[in-house]
C-alpha cells in the first residue's frame, strides 16, 4: 500500500488535486469504506485526497423548501439532529440503524452515497425523500437526482474529478407519515438484507401520496411509481397494502448474497413493505 496523502484545506484545493490526478486519486472522507478496500488491496490509488480539512462541509441547514446536508456530516450527527428528527424522522432512523455507533461516528453521508454499496441504509431513505446530490468539479457544479446518481454496484454518476458538495432533501408534504424499516438477517450490527423507506400523505383515511423505496435487495434502491400510484386516492386497506407489497416483490430483480438468496429477499420485500405501510396507515409519523 503506497500512496500520497493530500490534505487540502480548501474546496478549490481539493478540486484541483482531483482534476490533476483524475482516476489515480480517491477521495478520503471518514475512511470507513475506503480503508477497508485499501487493506484488502482491492483498490490501489496513487493519491488519496482527504477532504477532512476543508471547512464547512459538515452542516445540516434548514431552509423553507427542505434541508441541505453537507457531505462531511457524520451519520451520527444526522441521527441526532433535531431538525432531521423533526422533519425527516425516517432519515434519522435510517442513519441511526447503520452498523454500530463507532462506525456512525466516523462515517459520512458523502462517503456513504459515493460508496454506493447496495447493502446500505441512508440511500433508500434518501431516495424516498426525493434527494438531490450536488457534485462540484473545476468544470462547474451540477445537481443530480439520487435515482440518477446511483447507477449500479459501487457505481455512481460522479466523475473522478467531482466531489459531492451538498445533499438537498426537499420538504415532504405537511402531515406526512414516514417510516424506515431495516431488516437484518444476521447480527444486530449487520448491514441490511432488505430495507424499506415509506412516506405517505393522508386526507382523513385517504392516501393522497405514497412513496416507497426498497433497498439492499437489488443493485440500487428502487422506487416503483406505477405501484406507488395504486395508493393515490385510496384507503390503505389490507388488500391494497398486499397488492402494493406484491408489486414491489414481483418487480424487483433481487440479488443473492451471504445475507439471503434472491427468493428470500423477494419474501423480505413483500413482508417489509406490508409492515411499513401498516405502520403508516396506523398513524405513525
Amino acid at each position: 500500500m503506497s500512496f500520497e496523502l493530500l490534505q487540502p484545506d480548501s474546496l478549490p484545493g481539493a478540486l484541483k488535486a482531483l482534476a490533476q490526478h483524475g482516476d489515480e486519486a480517491k477521495v478520503l472522507a471518514g475512511g470507513t469504506a475506503i480503508v477497508l478496500m485499501l487493506q484488502q488491496k482491492l483498490i490501489a490509488p496513487t493519491v488519496l485526497v482527504s477532504v477532512g480539512r476543508i471547512p464547512d462541509l459538515a452542516y445540516i441547514r434548514s431552509e423553507p423548501d427542505g434541508i441541505h446536508v453537507g457531505p462531511l456530516t457524520t451519520l451520527r450527527d444526522m441521527e441526532r439532529s433535531l431538525v432531521i428528527q423533526t422533519h425527516f424522522p425516517l432519515l434519522a432512523q435510517a442513519s441511526g440503524e447503520v452498523g454500530n455507533i463507532r462506525v456512525r461516528n466516523q462515517a459520512t453521508l458523502g462517503g456513504n452515497l459515493a460508496e454506493a454499496d447496495y447493502a446500505s441504509d441512508p440511500p433508500t431513505a434518501l431516495l424516498a425523500l426525493g434527494t438531490q446530490v450536488t457534485a462540484t468539479s473545476l468544470r462547474g457544479e451540477r445537481t443530480i437526482p439520487l435515482e440518477d446518481f446511483l447507477i449500479g454496484f459501487y457505481t455512481t454518476d460522479l466523475e473522478p474529478d467531482e466531489l459531492i458538495t451538498d445533499v438537498f432533501i426537499p420538504a415532504s408534504a405537511p402531515g406526512s407519515r414516514t417510516t424506515y424499516l431495516k431488516y437484518r438477517s444476521r447480527s444486530s450490527e449487520d448491514r441490511p438484507c432488505a430495507c424499506v423507506a415509506a412516506i405517505a400523505a393522508f386526507e382523513a383515511e385517504t392516501c393522497t401520496d405514497l412513496r416507497v423505496a426498497v433497498g439492499a435487495a437489488s443493485e440500487v434502491p428502487q422506487r416503483l411509481p406505477a405501484v406507488e400510484n395504486l395508493a393515490r386516492g385510496q384507503a390503505l386497506t389490507d388488500e391494497l397494502i398486499g397488492e402494493i407489497a406484491a408489486g414491489y416483490a414481483d418487480n424487483i430483480d433481487t440479488l443473492e448474497d451471504i445475507r439471503g438468496s434472491a427468493w428470500y429477499r423477494t419474501q423480505m420485500i413483500r413482508i417489509h413493505v406490508v409492515r411499513a405501510l401498516e405502520e403508516l396507515r396506523n398513524g405513525r409519523r
Partner: peptide
Amino acid sequence: SDYMLPSFLD
C-alpha cells in the same frame, strides 16, 4: 463483515 460474529446486541 461477511463472516458474521454475534454482536453484544444479540
